[in-house]
Computed example of a mutant assay.
Amino acid sequence: MLDHPITRRWPASDPTAIQLYSLPTPNGQKVSIALEEMGLKYEPHLVDFATNDQFSPEFLSLNPNNKIPAIIDPEGPVALFESGAILIYLAEKSGKLLPEANRYEVLQWLMFQMGGLGPMFGQLGYFHHFAGKEIEDPRPKERYRAEAERLLKVLDGALEGRDWIAGDYSIADIAIGPWLRTLRDFYKGAEIAGWNDLKNVPAYLDRFLARPAVQKGSNIPARP
């Protein structure tokens, strides 16, 4: 598996370790945090968007969708892209953070992040914080602002009486946490999406960010 074309650009120093090709965006952080939480041996490789690494032939040989993160596990052997699929794979490999007793509840909230929080927060970030804010028509921003607010209310209600979204800490929390932080701290969009009216989500994010593996995994691979 480690004769894969991607290794021509990012050679493995430890061919027995999981090879992680990523950048510390919310989707990338999901996998580095999971690897830290699970204690799996891995080797990170920076896919630098500033130099368009994600469009290189080597990266596209692993992920034709040119998005991070992606992994190669020589023990599988398996090569994977899509952060949700990778989280499920790592949880099954390690036997951690995807308990059999409530497996489908965890997967339900993982999919909630993949199909809802990530895409909607990303669009709100574009129209509120990036180039989209120059568009005079207010309707695109309002569409995503309202949807972000709705999703946050769904999450807030589900957290009532719970520290973590599916009971015990799981890959669902690892998927959700980085996107909440990005909305609040990077996109500066939390307040307009009703953050200050939420009862449970702010403390939930604080619990997540206090975890040592989250703090370590949030900047792996380190930005240049």
Rank of each mutant, 00 (worst) to 15 (best):
P138R: 03
V214Q: 05
V78E: 06
Q113W: 08
G115F: 05
R139M: 12
F59C: 08
L152N: 00
E43H: 03
E75Q: 13
D137T: 02
P119V: 06
N196A: 15
I71H: 00
W195L: 13
V106F: 06
W179F: 14
P119S: 06
G28N: 08
R143I: 07
G95P: 02
E142M: 14
E149W: 06
F55H: 10
S56L: 11
V78K: 07
F186K: 10
Y21S: 05
W10D: 08
L152I: 11
I174T: 14
L180D: 03
L159E: 05
N52R: 12
T51E: 03
Y144R: 01
R103H: 12
A222T: 13
H129T: 15
R207W: 05
N52L: 14
L117H: 00
G161V: 13
R103A: 13
E136Q: 13
K93N: 08
P221Y: 03
A34E: 06
L87C: 06
H129F: 14
D197V: 12
G177V: 07
L205I: 12
L40C: 03
K67W: 07
P99C: 11
P212Y: 03
K188D: 12
L110C: 04
Y21W: 09
K96F: 03
K93M: 06
D53P: 04
N102W: 10
Q29F: 05
D156M: 09
N219C: 06
Q54E: 11
R184S: 14
K216N: 10
R181F: 14
I176F: 01
E191C: 09
A12Q: 07
G161Y: 08
E82I: 06
P69C: 14
F112M: 10
S218E: 07
R139E: 12
K216L: 15
P178V: 15
L23R: 07
Y104M: 15
L80P: 00
M111I: 15
K199Q: 14
P11K: 08
A17W: 06
Y144K: 02
N196Q: 12
Y187H: 10
K199M: 12
L205V: 10
G161E: 09
G76W: 08
E75F: 05
A213M: 02
G189L: 02
D137L: 11
D173S: 06
K67A: 13
R223C: 07
P138T: 06
F130P: 01
G132K: 05
L198D: 01
E160S: 12
G118M: 04
G95A: 09
V106S: 05
D48H: 08
P178I: 15
A222M: 10
V31Y: 00
F130R: 11
L98P: 01
A79F: 07
W179A: 03
A193C: 09
